[in-house]
Amino acid sequence: MAEKRMLSKVISISEKVNTLPDLFDMLLFTWMIPHSDDFGRLTGSPAKVKALIVPMLSKSIADIDSSLARLHDNGLINWYEAEEEKVIQIESFDKHQQGLHKRTKSKFPDFPGNSGNVQEIPSELNRTEQNGTEEKGIEQEQIFGSSHESMNPFRLFENEGFGTISSMTSELLGDLIDTYSERWVCEAMKISVKKGKRNLGFVEGILKNWKTDGIDEPWGREKDDEESERRNQGTRYGKDQRESEFAFLDNQNRTGR
């Protein structure tokens, strides 16, 4: 069993994790990962989990039992009993770990009815590419997607590096939302991120310009302008390239050769 495990940063925006009712549930779940075997399994006995995972916390065995039940209900673990032994199976474990192609057999029994069905593990290169694509997709969705999180100005402020939300910042964001709406504020913040201007002064400036223009969805025009600029840049590059290719003709005409 490996001494270290991978913990993907996408865990911080996992709905299953963030909807857990207790912070201890989140801690217990993440701390169980490095203690699991190459199949994502570990003992499911609450007493053993306490002794192995959180020996120095003042949590009772009953607390551990309740927390494991909540993790199971949220689909983060499969807490089952097989061969008179309680077992924890961390869901989607294979998806986020490396080096699993070397594993052989777990010392913990399979989930009943799933004996012998070991998932084939892709090569490390393919797994790295796959995980990288997945994380990039989630990050892009967080900034530009249509999820409810991308329309929360306060969440966007923290996730996209604008800073820490103080009482003054919260009040300013609230004023902007009251004046322009959550959608407008979020769209302006996204444009600020793309331009590398992570401050509310820049965001407010975008909002004021949009309001002056009187367009219902001005962020759509921003996207059109960006696309037009990219096309223009491509055209200018092509023109410059053609001019450089035939520059020798101008030199010949000037020298008469």
Rank of each mutant, 00 (worst) to 15 (best):
S8C: 10
E226G: 06
R155F: 15
L20K: 03
D38A: 12
R236G: 00
G256L: 09
L249A: 08
E187G: 00
E84P: 00
H72I: 08
K190S: 02
G161V: 01
S166M: 06
G205I: 05
E81A: 04
Q89H: 09
K4S: 10
F157P: 00
V17Q: 01
T212R: 10
S106N: 03
W219G: 07
E245K: 11
E85N: 10
E134Q: 04
S166D: 14
E227K: 08
E81N: 08
M151N: 12
N131H: 14
F39T: 04
K86A: 02
W184S: 10
S166V: 05
S166W: 12
E15L: 07
T30E: 06
L57V: 08
S45I: 01
K59H: 04
E91Q: 08
I90P: 06
Q142T: 12
L173I: 13
I88V: 11
Q140Y: 11
G132E: 10
R183Q: 11
I215C: 02
A69I: 05
I53V: 15
K48E: 07
T235R: 14
L176N: 02
N131F: 11
A69W: 06
Q97D: 11
S123F: 07
K59E: 08
D38M: 14
P112F: 13
E81I: 07
E227F: 02
L156S: 04
W210I: 02
I177S: 08
R183N: 11
Y237V: 07
K50S: 03
Q142F: 02
S123M: 12
G220C: 10
K223S: 07
L57R: 04
T212E: 10
D22Q: 05
R254F: 04
S192E: 04
G238F: 03
S244V: 13
N253Y: 09
G220L: 12
N152R: 13
N199A: 11
D37K: 01
L76I: 07
I33E: 00
F246R: 13
T30G: 00
R5T: 12
V10Q: 03
Q130E: 15
Y80V: 13
I88S: 00
